[in-house]
């Protein structure tokens, strides 16, 4: 790893000031950034460690909106009684990211700012139509994910919290890569009064909404409604693990499983 300057500010204001520096990057849980630095794919001049900023952590719910601080770890979301009550599908998603040690470090904000095409959280944020709160503004989920590892965040802009509207029902199903646990395909479904939103991760260069699935499920929110559903494989990811046609098929299968899970009564 190349050498860099290191700071661990205690406030958002101080972090934002430090991030304005040349070549500075924010360090959240480090589960992606540190491996990339070890491979020298990233060589920041300075790291701004966000782990001591209390204002970036925590979970709060008022029944209509669930707010989660950007530095809240996957393990905390997975174990949270508030999340389990408001959006149980989100707690279950968090509990299946990576492995236990990754969940003890990795954070919601880190995952979203990184926008890995196979990450789990972007599917939840997009399907739930969440609002991303930054040091400068609020960004709707539909505007946030711009492409592979690309988001609407500007240089020096810090993601501080995510506000999730509480749906009637929601769940996530993924076909995990057997080694990395990243999603080969993951589908998050969320049912609201206005209709159903469906987001797919792992299948393309970035998370995306699947409008044909949304239309079918808005009409009938039941696993049968998407039986046999598949999408056009054109443009889907192709690698040694799965060809586009297999990923297209998995989108339908995962959607069906997610709807079934969403309809299960809370335990």
């Amino acid at each position: 790893m190349r050498s860099f300057a290191y700071d661990r500010p205690a406030t958002i204001d101080r972090a934002v000031a430090l991030l304005a520096g040349e070549g500075a990057l924010a360090l959240a849980g480090g589960m992606t950034l540190l491996p990339t630095m070890k491979l020298r794919l990233s060589a920041p001049e300075a790291l701004v460690d966000l782990s001591s900023i209390a204002d970036l952590k925590g979970i709060a719910s008022d029944g209509k909106t669930l707010t989660i601080g950007a530095m809240t770890r996957h393990a905390d979301v997975a174990r949270s009684a508030e999340v389990a009550k408001a959006i149980p599908g989100l707690a279950r998603l968090a509990g299946r990211i990576g492995d236990p040690q990754v969940r003890n470090r990795g954070t919601l904000g880190g995952s979203l700012a990184n926008n890995d095409p196979a990450a789990d959280y972007p599917a939840a944020v997009l399907a739930l139509g969440a609002t991303l709160v930054t040091s400068r503004r609020e960004i709707a989920a539909d505007e946030f994910f711009r492409g592979m590892f690309e988001t609407a965040l500007e240089p020096g802009e810090l993601l501080t919290a995510v506000r999730f509207p509480v749906p009637y029902a929601a769940a996530y199903a993924k076909f995990p890569h057997p080694a990395s646990r990243f999603a080969l395909v993951g589908v998050f479904v969320a049912q609201f009064k206005a209709g159903v939103r469906v987001a797919v991760t792992g299948a393309a260069s970035s998370v995306f909404r699947c409008h044909p699935l949304e239309a079918r499920l808005s009409e009938n929110f039941a696993p049968e409604a998407v039986a046999g559903f598949t999408v056009d494989p054109k443009g889907l990811n192709s690698d040694i693990h799965a060809e586009p046609a297999f990923r297209a098929h998995l989108i339908g299968v995962m959607a069906r499983r997610a709807v079934a899970a969403a309809l299960q009564p809370a335990v």
């Binding site: 589960m31 540190l34 491996p35 070890k38 790291l47 040690q101 990754v102 003890n104 470090r105």
Partner: peptide, 22 residues
């Protein structure tokens, strides 16, 4: 590369991978 888990230690009583922590 934080995959194998041979480097797991406890940080404040929680298991973490020490090869991916500064």
């Amino acid at each position: 590369t934080s995959q194998c888990g041979a480097c797991v230690v406890h940080l404040d009583d929680e298991s973490v991978k020490s090869c991916t922590i500064l």
